[in-house]
Design a binder for these strands. Structure first.
Ligand code: MN
Ligand code: MN
Ligand code: MN
Ligand code: MN
Lengths: 216, 216
DNA sequence: TAAAATTTTTAGATTAGTCTAAAATTATTA
DNA sequence: TAATAATTTTAGACTAATCTAAAAATTTTA
């Protein structure tokens, strides 16, 4: 139907659209580790297929059919990640690259059966919501730990940085999805935060506080 | 490491090698639904990578490293088929095409974990042996039902034809892997066979008898 | 064993995706 | 608002995989 590459472009545009409405050529090039010239070529092709709205120099948005494809790729990515962690005992920092391959397996029947096999999970191992078979899901609004003030509480529910380095760090600090945290103290000088997690004090930097997401 | 296409060529050469020692350009072209000229181009590339032994006009054989890759693809194919049937409840005639995609997922860690998750099955849903993590497996020698004489018994253990049409036919006739059969009668004229399966008589044509494999 | 048939390879194109370098457009800023 | 900077597109080239048509090699057959 669509090539591997087209799917990756659509997915990248989808993710970038969450930040900035219209998406620029350079943003896409950066996200896909490719060059602006290559992106322009692909944008023409995707526009021909009516998967994106594209006017030269003006940036792009997804059309409804482009968005549908992007969401189906994301559904597959997140369900496979869930499978890898819950059934095959991978760690949450080990699954992304494998899921990048698995997300391109085309069978819808396969992914719907996999979804049922696992009991229709709603969130992937990193707290990201999994679209259902019809592409529906609610983007739960999470805020970073850095948005809390002293004595406020939250439940760790997602991450802004999906890198192995960050995930491994969180794992070591026992800052994993589902844990309840309370802000014990905020350092005025460097904005680092001392959290109370299961009665233990955990000191995290401002950067970590920015990338760790909570619900209330 | 290698492209999908290279992997498909190696796998095709491996399967054809089981029949004919050295494999011809046209055999490969037929197996992969492509043209002889395309095959020649690819053979040069595989030879450059030392995955096949190739001398112009002389046909090809796999090198040890080529064979190792082919077997790893077959391992993945058969394990995924097992997963689809045993865990996701696909029918045995529905899994081949999906496995054709899944077999190219590169992670060895993934496939080894999947293997363990399923309890290290030795045969896929069609009775074909699954290579272990080191690529080892014994090619069990099966013979077709048509090789039996009257009153001989056997256990259905494999198929020579993997087409959906044939598999669905067997399913309808309840001629599935593991069943014990006994030859009740062989028709001299058309070589059709009457089998006794669980005390029921099942009449199959010579063609079916040729494509249904048994162990003793 | 020489002609005919078949198989295989080469030659030359095509398509998808990528690149660098240069040109065109848009945005910034002085 | 005109020059400068940054972004984006175009032009032209490259690689991988494919094709058709023609040439070369091998095999068959008479
Ligand atoms: Mn991921
Ligand atoms: Mn994830
Ligand atoms: Mn198969
Ligand atoms: Mn099989």
């Amino acid at each position: 139907m669509n090539t591997f590459t087209e799917e990756n472009y659509l997915k990248a545009i989808y993710h970038l659209s969450l930040q900035s409405e219209s998406v620029s050529t350079n943003q896409i090039a950066a996200a896909l580790n490719t060059k602006a010239a290559s992106v322009t070529d692909m944008l023409k092709k995707l526009a021909d297929k009516e998967l994106i709205n594209y006017a030269k120099y003006q940036g792009v948005t997804l059309t409804p059919s482009g968005e549908k494809i992007a969401i189906s790729i994301i559904r597959k990515h997140r369900l496979w990640e869930y499978f890898l962690v819950e059934k095959l005992n991978f760690k949450w920092d080990e699954v992304h690259d494998v899921a990048e391959e698995l997300e391109h397996i085309s069978s819808k029947e396969l992914i719907d059966r996999l979804d049922n096999f696992m009991g229709n999970p709603r969130y992937d191992p990193h707290g990201d919501p999994i679209p259902d078979s019809n592409g529906l899901f609610k983007t739960h609004e999470l805020k970073p730990v850095s948005a809390l003030t002293t004595n406020e509480k939250g439940i760790i529910s997602g991450v802004r940085d999906h890198s192995s380095a960050f995930l491994q760090y969180l794992e070591r600090m026992q800052l994993t999805i589902g844990k309840t945290i309370k802000v014990a103290e905020i350092n005025d000088y460097d904005h680092s935060v001392i959290l109370l997690v299961e009665d233990k004090k955990i000191h995290i930097s401002r950067e970590v506080a920015n990338n760790l997401l909570i619900s209330i």
